[in-house]
Amino acid sequence: MLLIRCPYCEEDRPELEFRHAGEAHLVRPSNMDAMSDAEFERFLFIRQNPKGVVFERWRHVHGCARFFNAARDTITDKFVTTYKAGEPKPTLEGAEE
């Protein structure tokens, strides 16, 4: 069971309290009506899923209930860092842009 640092609770908490919520830093476009079908498909369905550091959303659903972002290494399964929703994507070694 992983320990996950909740950036709002400022504490490492057991994975059981959290729920994964998909890729991070996807912004819902404000002009969706103007998007072509191909653009909308890219936004809705296409995800990166790289080997190595991924940026993903988690929710401390059974804790403070906040959504937040995390960088996690899919090889070691270790969290590199976690940060609050809305904060910029950190620059990390080994992470794809």
Binding site: R28, R57, R59, V61, A65, R66, F67, A85, G86
Partner: peptide, 13 residues
């Protein structure tokens, strides 16, 4: 509720 919180916290904060 999770779906609503997700949009409220992350898309429409």
């Amino acid at each position: 509720l999770n779906h609503m919180e997700d949009y409220l916290q992350t898309e429409f904060p």
